[in-house]
Amino acid sequence: MKIILTQEVSGLGSPGDVVEVKDGYSRNYLLPQGFAILWTKGGEKQVTSIKRARSAREIRDLGHANEVKSQLEGLKVSLSARAGDGGRLFGSVTPAEVAAAVKSAGGPDLDRRRLELPGHIKSVGSYQVQVKLHPEVTAKFALNVLAGK
């Protein structure tokens, strides 16, 4: 089955890519999750708008990715979240909250889908977060989760 990806799917492609996948994979996973749409001639026109949106928020080249990596690795990112006794959070820290914390700490604007958190962050402490900036460049930075709010 031919589909058009609307989001990044690891091992398959980037938004705007037209790929051929098994029928069950697209029908049971990709389409219901909103990761893809069926390929049609009308859908082909959407590919240009998807690719244009992707290029606006994507890292331009390897040099730019290395520049963003050096900027991220020198950054001290703190995030305050509501916590109970013993440092246990009410809920967990989401990639969107981490991206907002990086932006407020003076870092670059990151796409939350490219952040790789070390599991579910459900307690106060220090964590290592990875960001896949480019297929060849991955940056790591320290995230300090504080009790607050």
Rank of each mutant, 00 (worst) to 15 (best):
G42M: 14
F141H: 02
K76H: 13
V77S: 01
L110Q: 09
L75E: 06
F35A: 15
S78H: 13
S10Y: 02
R54D: 07
V137C: 07
G86H: 07
L133A: 08
I121A: 00
V68Q: 03
G42H: 09
G119K: 02
P108R: 03
L72I: 01
A139W: 04
A81G: 05
L31Y: 03
L12R: 03
P118Q: 01
Q46A: 15
G13W: 01
V102F: 08
D61G: 10
I37Q: 07
K69L: 12
R27V: 09
L72N: 09
P95F: 02
S10P: 15
I50V: 11
S80N: 04
G42K: 15
G74W: 05
D17V: 11
Q33Y: 05
S78T: 15
F141W: 00
L30P: 00
R82H: 06
G125P: 05
D111I: 08
D109E: 10
P32I: 08
E44N: 10
R82D: 04
E58C: 13
E67M: 14
S70R: 10
G74A: 15
L115F: 00
A36T: 02
D109K: 08
G42Y: 11
K76M: 14
L117T: 02
F90K: 01
S78F: 12
Y25K: 14
S80T: 07
V47A: 06
H64I: 14
E58Q: 13
H120M: 15
K41V: 12
R88T: 06
P95R: 00
V93I: 07
S14G: 15
A56Y: 02
V68D: 02
S80Q: 09
E73P: 03
A105T: 00
S49F: 11
V102I: 14
L79H: 04
E20K: 12
A83L: 04
V124T: 08
S70Y: 06
A101W: 04
G63E: 15
S78V: 12
L89M: 00
H134M: 12
A81H: 12
E136F: 03
E136S: 13
E136I: 12
G16T: 08
F141M: 07
G107S: 09
R114F: 01
T94Y: 03
L79D: 00
R54K: 10
G13Q: 00
G106C: 07
K103T: 11
G107D: 11
R54T: 10
V68N: 01
Y127I: 00
K41W: 05
L133T: 06
G87N: 02
N28A: 04
L31E: 09
